[in-house]
């Protein structure tokens, strides 16, 4: 592949790179990119915008699966409004890529700071036993439920 412009053109041997990385990594790359954005270092240094990322079916205002909806509702209860979502129904390669990336067979999938937290069942259990408040706090998010507790 030739890339670049005005004298800065260069040849990137995509086939060679693909061969070197192997099929598993290649499939996961798209998902990794979805999590980290273009600037990988931002997310690694935990200053990225993508503190909470959800791979789901549909969008938060219109989830197309009960389990995705449950995740959205749990986050809403904790006052988490600003998070990045990806609708895997719109992109089959992302749907498969994220499963490969996180080694997790089902959607939805929740990530805090690029780290896989779990799917619907795990998030629900974390919500029920209070772990979610703690985990949110670790990534710098004050849960609305925690706020309630301090008020009381």
């Amino acid at each position: 592949m030739y890339a670049g412009h005005s004298g800065k053109e260069r040849y990137i041997p995509v086939h060679g790179i693909v061969h070197q990385l192997g099929p598993t990594v290649c499939v996961s790359l798209l998902a990794a990119h979805a999590l980290t954005g273009c600037d990988t270092m931002c997310s690694m240094n935990r200053i990225g915008k993508k503190t909470v990322v959800v791979f789901m079916k549909g969008i938060p205002t219109q989830p197309l699966c009960g389990f995705s909806n449950a995740v959205v509702q749990i986050l809403r209860m904790h006052g988490v409004e600003n998070y990045t979502t990806y609708n895997v129904l719109e992109d089959e390669s992302l749907r498969e890529g994220i499963k490969e990336f996180s080694n997790w067979p089902t959607i939805p999938q929740v990530f805090f700071n690029g780290e896989f937290v779990g799917g619907c069942d795990i998030l629900l259990q974390m919500h029920q036993n209070g772990d979610l408040v703690e985990e949110l706090q670790k990534v710098g998010i004050m849960s609305a439920l925690q706020f309630d507790e301090t008020k009381n």
Binding site: T106, F116, G118, C120, D121
Partner: peptide
Amino acid sequence: RLQQHRLVNSCLEEELKIIHAFQ
């Protein structure tokens, strides 16, 4: 918990590919 679920998922790897929903 995540590791517990992963243990189960790894045992059911093939089945989970064809199952629609798994709680």
